[in-house]
Amino acid sequence: MRETYKTQKVCSFYVSNMHFATMILPFAKKQIEEKTKVITFLENNFTTNIELVLSKLIAAEEIKREILNINWKDTKAVKYINIEKILKNKLDSNNKNVIIVNGNEDYINNVNYCIDRYLQKSHKKIETNEIKVINFYEVRNF
């Protein structure tokens, strides 16, 4: 018998783009300080909101630069091959990883399916207990 590998899955709910930005930035700051790799799959572009909230965040300039290096633009490509390419390039097998997914329910489900499929395929190379996926759902869609 063998176990199917699973990542830790976390959900979150937000009511506006600014709400998402104010929730995610202190969290992203903490991840960077702890050397955790942050990877994003966003259905919409949050760059403006992130930059606005970041300008008010108390953090070292170096940390702010690293936060801005995270991709806050939309990743509309949801085909497996594109998601696989991003994960192959960005997942850090030597440190913890957090994958942030934000979009409507279909987008989130599709991206998660691709992530799970990639990790099943690559489990021998990656410690899957070091990967956390946080799915952000916009409340107005319920």
Partner: peptide, 10 residues
Amino acid sequence: ILDKHNAIFN
């Protein structure tokens, strides 16, 4: 949605 996850973040 909650059933598909291990924890919740706020």
